[in-house]
Protein backbone atom coordinates (compact mmCIF):
# COMPACT_ATOMS: atom_id res chain seq x y z
CA UNK A 1 0.00 0.00 0.00
CA UNK A 2 1.22 3.51 -0.77
CA UNK A 3 1.31 6.52 1.53
CA UNK A 4 0.65 10.03 0.23
CA UNK A 5 4.24 10.46 -0.91
CA UNK A 6 4.03 7.12 -2.72
CA UNK A 7 0.94 8.25 -4.62
CA UNK A 8 2.73 11.48 -5.56
CA UNK A 9 5.81 9.52 -6.64
CA UNK A 10 3.74 7.29 -8.92
CA UNK A 11 1.98 10.29 -10.49
CA UNK A 12 5.33 11.98 -11.08
CA UNK A 13 6.08 9.12 -13.49
CA UNK A 14 3.21 10.35 -15.68
CA UNK A 15 4.82 13.75 -16.22
CA UNK A 16 6.63 14.24 -19.54
CA UNK A 17 9.40 16.56 -20.63
CA UNK A 18 8.07 19.90 -21.89
CA UNK A 19 4.80 19.81 -20.00
CA UNK A 20 3.08 22.60 -18.09
CA UNK A 21 1.42 21.06 -15.03
CA UNK A 22 -1.19 22.33 -12.56
CA UNK A 23 -1.07 20.64 -9.16
CA UNK A 24 -4.01 20.90 -6.77
CA UNK A 25 -3.89 21.20 -2.99
CA UNK A 26 -2.94 18.19 -0.85
CA UNK A 27 -1.36 15.04 -2.31
CA UNK A 28 -1.03 16.64 -5.79
CA UNK A 29 1.28 19.35 -4.40
CA UNK A 30 3.73 16.61 -3.38
CA UNK A 31 4.16 15.49 -7.01
CA UNK A 32 6.59 18.39 -7.59
CA UNK A 33 9.02 16.77 -5.13
CA UNK A 34 9.46 13.70 -7.34
CA UNK A 35 10.11 15.18 -10.78
CA UNK A 36 13.46 13.86 -12.05
CA UNK A 37 16.33 16.33 -12.03
CA UNK A 38 16.86 17.96 -15.42
CA UNK A 39 13.33 17.33 -16.69
CA UNK A 40 11.90 20.46 -18.34
CA UNK A 41 8.57 20.91 -16.53
CA UNK A 42 6.88 24.09 -15.34
CA UNK A 43 4.30 24.22 -12.59
CA UNK A 44 1.34 26.54 -12.94
CA UNK A 45 -0.63 27.82 -10.00
CA UNK A 46 -3.96 29.32 -11.00
CA UNK A 47 -3.60 32.40 -8.80
CA UNK A 48 -1.07 33.63 -11.36
CA UNK A 49 2.36 32.02 -11.70
CA UNK A 50 4.11 29.72 -14.14
CA UNK A 51 7.44 28.39 -13.00
CA UNK A 52 6.57 27.88 -9.36
CA UNK A 53 9.50 26.78 -7.21
CA UNK A 54 9.80 25.14 -3.78
CA UNK A 55 8.76 26.72 -0.49
CA UNK A 56 11.09 29.59 0.52
CA UNK A 57 13.81 29.27 3.12
CA UNK A 58 12.75 30.46 6.55
CA UNK A 59 12.92 34.27 6.51
CA UNK A 60 12.74 34.62 2.72
CA UNK A 61 8.94 34.34 2.49
CA UNK A 62 7.14 37.09 0.56
CA UNK A 63 3.46 37.91 1.23
CA UNK A 64 3.09 38.82 -2.46
CA UNK A 65 4.25 35.42 -3.69
CA UNK A 66 1.87 32.56 -2.92
CA UNK A 67 0.32 29.52 -4.60
CA UNK A 68 -3.38 28.74 -5.00
CA UNK A 69 -3.32 27.08 -1.57
CA UNK A 70 -2.20 30.48 -0.21
CA UNK A 71 1.14 29.00 0.83
CA UNK A 72 4.30 31.05 0.44
CA UNK A 73 6.37 29.83 -2.53
CA UNK A 74 9.35 30.83 -4.68
CA UNK A 75 9.72 31.49 -8.41
CA UNK A 76 12.13 29.53 -10.64
CA UNK A 77 14.37 31.26 -13.20
CA UNK A 78 12.12 31.89 -16.22
CA UNK A 79 9.00 32.20 -14.09
CA UNK A 80 6.23 34.62 -15.02
CA UNK A 81 3.33 36.24 -13.17
CA UNK A 82 -0.05 37.06 -14.69
CA UNK A 83 -3.62 37.95 -13.80
CA UNK A 84 -6.43 35.47 -13.06
CA UNK A 85 -8.12 35.83 -16.45
CA UNK A 86 -4.86 35.01 -18.25
CA UNK A 87 -4.30 32.14 -15.86
CA UNK A 88 -7.62 30.51 -16.72
CA UNK A 89 -7.05 31.22 -20.41
CA UNK A 90 -4.06 28.90 -20.05
CA UNK A 91 -6.26 26.30 -18.39
CA UNK A 92 -9.42 26.59 -20.52
CA UNK A 93 -7.37 27.11 -23.67
CA UNK A 94 -5.64 23.76 -23.07
CA UNK A 95 -2.16 25.17 -22.81
CA UNK A 96 -1.62 23.19 -19.61
CA UNK A 97 -0.86 19.54 -20.39
CA UNK A 98 -1.66 17.92 -17.05
CA UNK A 99 -3.89 18.67 -14.09
CA UNK A 100 -3.54 16.65 -10.90
CA UNK A 101 -6.16 17.11 -8.23
CA UNK A 102 -7.75 15.41 -5.25
CA UNK A 103 -11.32 14.14 -5.01
CA UNK A 104 -13.94 12.99 -2.54
CA UNK A 105 -15.59 10.72 -5.12
CA UNK A 106 -14.89 9.57 -8.68
CA UNK A 107 -17.46 7.73 -10.79
CA UNK A 108 -16.88 4.99 -13.36
CA UNK A 109 -17.95 7.41 -16.13
CA UNK A 110 -15.26 9.94 -15.14
CA UNK A 111 -17.47 12.28 -13.07
CA UNK A 112 -15.73 13.91 -10.13
CA UNK A 113 -17.02 15.40 -6.87
CA UNK A 114 -14.60 17.34 -4.71
CA UNK A 115 -16.10 20.65 -3.57
CA UNK A 116 -19.25 20.29 -1.51
CA UNK A 117 -20.76 18.04 1.13
CA UNK A 118 -24.48 18.73 1.68
CA UNK A 119 -25.17 19.76 5.26
CA UNK A 120 -21.61 20.90 5.85
CA UNK A 121 -20.13 24.35 5.42
CA UNK A 122 -19.68 25.07 1.72
CA UNK A 123 -16.36 26.74 1.07
CA UNK A 124 -16.59 26.95 -2.69
CA UNK A 125 -15.13 25.31 -5.75
CA UNK A 126 -12.24 27.72 -6.29
CA UNK A 127 -10.68 26.85 -9.64
CA UNK A 128 -11.60 23.15 -9.60
CA UNK A 129 -14.58 23.38 -11.97
CA UNK A 130 -12.62 25.35 -14.56
CA UNK A 131 -9.72 22.91 -14.31
CA UNK A 132 -11.75 19.71 -14.70
CA UNK A 133 -13.97 21.11 -17.44
CA UNK A 134 -11.07 22.00 -19.69
CA UNK A 135 -7.98 19.93 -18.99
CA UNK A 136 -7.26 17.22 -21.55
CA UNK A 137 -5.39 15.10 -19.09
CA UNK A 138 -6.73 14.90 -15.55
CA UNK A 139 -5.27 12.57 -12.97
CA UNK A 140 -6.99 12.23 -9.62
CA UNK A 141 -4.77 11.59 -6.62
CA UNK A 142 -6.62 10.26 -3.60
CA UNK A 143 -7.01 7.48 -1.05
CA UNK A 144 -9.05 4.54 -2.36
CA UNK A 145 -11.50 4.69 0.56
CA UNK A 146 -12.72 7.48 2.84
CA UNK A 147 -12.14 7.75 6.58
CA UNK A 148 -15.22 5.59 7.23
CA UNK A 149 -13.72 2.89 5.00
CA UNK A 150 -16.22 3.40 2.16
CA UNK A 151 -15.05 3.26 -1.46
CA UNK A 152 -14.45 6.58 -3.23
CA UNK A 153 -14.61 4.86 -6.63
CA UNK A 154 -18.32 4.57 -7.33
CA UNK A 155 -20.89 3.60 -9.97
CA UNK A 156 -22.04 7.24 -9.76
CA UNK A 157 -21.14 10.16 -7.48
CA UNK A 158 -23.45 10.82 -4.54
CA UNK A 159 -22.00 14.26 -3.78
CA UNK A 160 -22.62 17.40 -5.88
CA UNK A 161 -20.46 17.21 -9.01
CA UNK A 162 -17.44 19.31 -9.86
CA UNK A 163 -17.30 18.09 -13.44
CA UNK A 164 -18.76 15.41 -15.71
CA UNK A 165 -16.95 12.66 -17.59
CA UNK A 166 -13.56 14.30 -17.20
CA UNK A 167 -11.27 12.05 -15.15
CA UNK A 168 -8.98 9.83 -17.24
CA UNK A 169 -6.80 8.21 -14.61
CA UNK A 170 -6.93 7.68 -10.85
CA UNK A 171 -3.93 6.91 -8.66
CA UNK A 172 -4.74 5.76 -5.12
CA UNK A 173 -2.91 4.13 -2.23
CA UNK A 174 -3.95 0.77 -3.74
CA UNK A 175 -3.88 1.07 -7.51
CA UNK A 176 -3.59 2.90 -10.82
CA UNK A 177 -6.82 2.78 -12.81
CA UNK A 178 -7.86 4.22 -16.14
CA UNK A 179 -11.44 5.31 -16.76
CA UNK A 180 -12.93 4.39 -20.12
CA UNK A 181 -16.13 2.89 -21.52
CA UNK A 182 -17.97 3.47 -18.25
CA UNK A 183 -15.63 1.46 -16.03
CA UNK A 184 -12.46 1.58 -13.97
CA UNK A 185 -9.74 -0.42 -15.71
CA UNK A 186 -7.10 -1.73 -13.36
CA UNK A 187 -3.62 -0.87 -14.62
CA UNK A 188 -1.24 -1.46 -11.71
CA UNK A 189 -1.31 -2.67 -8.12
CA UNK A 190 0.49 -0.85 -5.30
CA UNK A 191 3.32 -2.84 -3.70
CA UNK A 192 1.94 -5.64 -1.51
CA UNK A 193 -1.67 -5.11 -2.62
CA UNK A 194 -3.62 -7.91 -4.30
CA UNK A 195 -6.19 -7.62 -7.07
CA UNK A 196 -8.72 -8.94 -4.56
CA UNK A 197 -7.91 -6.07 -2.13
CA UNK A 198 -8.53 -3.56 -4.91
CA UNK A 199 -11.74 -5.21 -6.09
CA UNK A 200 -13.05 -5.24 -2.51
CA UNK A 201 -12.35 -1.51 -2.11
CA UNK A 202 -13.87 -0.49 -5.44
CA UNK A 203 -17.64 0.00 -5.50
CA UNK A 204 -17.78 1.01 -9.19
CA UNK A 205 -17.42 -1.37 -12.12
CA UNK A 206 -13.84 -2.65 -12.20
CA UNK A 207 -12.33 -4.31 -15.26
CA UNK A 208 -9.43 -6.55 -14.29
CA UNK A 209 -7.07 -7.62 -17.07
CA UNK A 210 -5.28 -10.95 -16.94
CA UNK A 211 -2.00 -9.41 -15.94
CA UNK A 212 -1.91 -6.59 -13.37
CA UNK A 213 1.72 -5.62 -12.70
CA UNK A 214 2.90 -4.18 -9.40
CA UNK A 215 3.93 -0.51 -9.52
CA UNK A 216 7.59 0.24 -9.80
CA UNK A 217 8.19 3.28 -7.64
CA UNK A 218 11.82 3.11 -6.58
Amino acid sequence: MLDKNGIAKRIAQEVRNGWYVNLGIGIPTLVANFIPEGMEVEFQSENGILGMGPFPMDGDEDADLINAGKQTITAMPGAVYFDSATSFAMIRGRHVQLTVLGAMEVAQNGDIANWKIPGKMVKGMGGAMDLVASAENIIVAMMHTNRAGASKLLPSCSLPLTGVGCVKRVVTNLAVMDIKDGAFHLVERAPGVTVQDIAAATAGKLVIPENVPEMNID
Binding site: M57, I66, T72
Partner: peptide, 15 residues
Amino acid sequence: DKRIEQRTVQTRETA
Protein backbone atom coordinates in the same frame (compact mmCIF):
# COMPACT_ATOMS: atom_id res chain seq x y z
CA ASP B 1 0.18 44.80 6.93
CA LYS B 2 0.44 42.22 4.10
CA ARG B 3 -0.50 39.25 6.22
CA ILE B 4 0.45 35.74 5.14
CA GLU B 5 -2.29 33.13 5.46
CA GLN B 6 -0.17 29.98 5.09
CA ARG B 7 3.44 30.68 5.95
CA THR B 8 5.20 27.64 4.49
CA VAL B 9 8.99 27.54 4.63
CA GLN B 10 11.94 25.19 4.57
CA THR B 11 14.11 25.36 7.64
CA ARG B 12 17.72 26.12 6.83
CA GLU B 13 19.07 23.22 8.92
CA THR B 14 17.23 20.49 7.04
CA ALA B 15 17.48 21.97 3.58
